[in-house]
Design a protein around this nucleic acid. Sequence first.
DNA 1: CCCTTATGAATGTCAGACAATTAAAGGTCT
DNA 2: AGACCTTTAATTGTCTGACATTCATAAGGG
Lengths: 246, 246
Amino acid sequence: MKTADPAQPRQDLSAQIAEAIRDAIVEGRMITGERLPSEAELSEQFGVSRSTVREALKRLAAQSLIRTQRGAFGGAFVNRLSYQGAYSQHITTSTLLLSMNAVSFETACEARYTLERACAPIAARRRTDHSLATMRAEIARQSQAGLSDEAFCASDVALHRALVDAADNPVLSYQLAGAVEAMQPLMNMITFTARSRGEIVGLHSALADALEHQDAPAADTALHRLEAYTLTLGRDVMATRARKST
Amino acid sequence: MKTADPAQPRQDLSAQIAEAIRDAIVEGRMITGERLPSEAELSEQFGVSRSTVREALKRLAAQSLIRTQRGAFGGAFVNRLSYQGAYSQHITTSTLLLSMNAVSFETACEARYTLERACAPIAARRRTDHSLATMRAEIARQSQAGLSDEAFCASDVALHRALVDAADNPVLSYQLAGAVEAMQPLMNMITFTARSRGEIVGLHSALADALEHQDAPAADTALHRLEAYTLTLGRDVMATRARKST
DNA sequence: CCCTTATGAATGTCAGACAATTAAAGGTCT
DNA sequence: AGACCTTTAATTGTCTGACATTCATAAGGG
């Protein structure tokens, strides 16, 4: 049944088959929850061996386009791409992009805070008691003395996510997840002193206060100052490293 | 060599192996361009068959974490995740997310314009003659009479991408790509009348003018009005559909 | 010295087998 | 009749071995 392309096997059969099935899903010819033909049937349809079909299915599974189930009446099913799944994929991609492309601290920082400031006015309008409580809890954690650098950074990420989520727009949360989370490795480089932690916690508090009073301009100011301070810290670290390496 | 986990094969061997290799890449234990052991070596190291290793490698290839090369001194190599690759992955994920989760037009619209407005001040500061020329060219195309709806939408996307790219921050461009491109299917629903096209082109021109004069507030205003108008159009379409279906 | 030809290492594909899993059908006991 | 157990068939997961294909390098010939 290999009637096609006698001269352009520019990619693997498994990649071609994966693409064919992916197109069917993306274009809506297969809907969420629908069951794909069994591996045996697919191998017959495409005129390839079962191993090749399996490799194609694994490719799709890696993009969480399908999930597989063993046993009778099992098989491969078209996945519903959940926000959760999309988040984690986006974060993985963003993290790799940043780590592999020598993105400068300045560029990443600018992107992150620009996007966060965009959320701030909406968050100020829609913030709930619950989202405020989450932010306050993270601020309290960050104020603890014996906190490790990793824990401080994780709490920092959690606080910023709470800010984004306060805007109550899942699409926005999804888009921002990459920007916020992927910055964490870069932020981890900055070993925070007690002094700088205090400064950051102060700005976080100002941010939470602004949201509480639904004061969008104040939130914008706090984020601007946070960006400026983060940038200063980052540059100090860079400068210190440069001195040490000479 | 399967010494591990006698009781938690919660996922496939190929998935476990893929995860192990992915971790090695993400954590930097394998660097860009580095060659993985051959399939035969990997199958020995992990104590599984070659087929299983291959399925794991296909999973990684699907996320473009590795690429494979045939022939002598071929093998699997750790990929450098290019901006291009990250863009397309992000767009695919965003499109699927929107199409599979019944996101409302309002939510998607808000997310998109919020993010674009975040870029506008930076774009106003850094816009080059080249980015302005791109925008003007798209506006000219949109003004043509015989343009199909698809072509109009494509040009719309191109214009908004030019706006984002004018901010000259690749991380920002990457994050925004998903928001702008994934909206296209939703925007395509709106069959533009000649009247509404004129309105939109007018707002696009105002936007380009604002960037040319580096007038950030004016750009912000134009985007606000564009969002409001888009929302109106979308609601009209919805209302018309609701009437027809009854 | 250059061109051609082997060589070998690696991925790509195939075929067939068996293990593991699971839902549903069928059978048995109360 | 209904609850519980057993069988069965379908399907994915894994293994083995084979052969095809590709391609950089080494070997050989002019």
